[in-house]
Amino acid sequence: MSDYVVDESTIFETPLVELDLDIEADADVYAKVEWFNLYDAPHGGGSVKSRIAKGMLDGAEERGDLEPGVTVIEPTSGNTGSEIARLAAVRGYDVEIVMPDNAAGGKVEAVRDAGAEIHFVDANRGYDAVIERCEAIIAADPDAYFRPNQYENPDNPGTHERTTAREIYEATDGEVTHFVAGVGTGGTITGTGRGLTDLTDGAAEIVGFEPDEPLHAIDGLKYLKTGDHYHPDTYDESVLDRTAYVTTADAYDQARALRERYLDDAVPIADPGQHDEETIREHLRVDDQFVVGTSAGGGAAAVVGLDEAGELDDGDTVVFMLCDRGDKYADIPLWEEYL
């Protein structure tokens, strides 16, 4: 039995902060601060993937698909791997994570800390090769493994539909007009989008964003714009009202703009979720800087892009996701000069 400890009760009910983006419309822009899932865990706390790791493991245990003695295995670009590794270790399972060898250092360390075995795959071979390696490992001993499978498991979007959507709806007093999220597995945009569409009777516009270039560095997101690509079962485009495209350069620029904007000013807390203000203030910044991950920068860029396209009006209420904290990326160009 592993002696690794994380507090699963800190998952869900994350804070909502109000952000001052450079937009023309007099709209309120809010963001869910997802590293407050497992906020006390080392290497940047948790992430938006803490939600689905819990949802998929809970679901598998309830259905009897995951039993003692089985090894949990998952292909991942990082965050899902670290969150599954953390939660599965606490529950007593051995874990193997398959990830590309360019995964951000903070994510790799989080997986290692949880005691999981890592199989690295040459990043040059692309993400499909990561999935193929995982499938080959399972095929060699199928009874030994359980794969949550974030790309096919309905508990991925289902968890967001039950939790993220309701949290956003309640924290904005039902006034959310736009929800913006990146597309990797598609679970966040599909599940939260379904939930918000239901809760707002279709009033909320659901906007997914994807990388604009095949060779990008927006963590966890999938290039789907052109060509023949693997399409996750967890991604239902029919939920979306529109798709936006974001360059890595714009994602970096917006992440750095947020850091600059809040160097001297506190980030306003619109709704604390399950946390007290002291905890939020302690974990919102790193080295007294408000630094977010690459996909969070991408979300901000997508909101700015909507505004530039004339899609935001005065009085709108926009919500996007700060999927993880910047210290996971201290070893890549986004933050290596700052952290």
Partner: peptide, 11 residues
């Protein structure tokens, strides 16, 4: 010569 983005994105 190899070319790799500075983070994991993939397809």
């Amino acid at each position: 010569v190899r070319v790799i983005p500075a983070a994991s994105g993939g397809r």
